[in-house]
Amino acid sequence: MTPAVFYALTGLGLFVLGLHALIVHAHLLRKILAFNVMGSGVFLVLAGLAGRTPSGIPDPVPHAMVITGIVVAVAATALALSLMLRVAGATGSARLPDETER
């Protein structure tokens, strides 16, 4: 197993782990964190596979994508956090109404 594949598989693992957490946890903060884990997983896949070029020189394009992705993720997280605070303010709980803690 080359390091690239290892990184990619780890990335996939992170994605699945995040997905699991997203579904299982009801608290919005945990859900947002789960998204960040999933996002990191995808970035790891992108960055990891970038090393697998015939010439051995890492492909710069996926890195550009990861940077863009991180910017998007930061923005999304910021929106999610502020929305969470307002939901908590309006409903008195940082959980979505019809979901109970499992």
Binding site: L19, L22, F35, L79, M84, R86, V87, T91, L96, P97
Partner: peptide, 14 residues
């Protein structure tokens, strides 16, 4: 609206 938006955000991000 806030709860609807939150759920929408989660779905959209996923």
């Amino acid at each position: 609206a806030l709860v609807g938006a939150m759920r929408y955000l989660l779905v959209s991000l996923l």
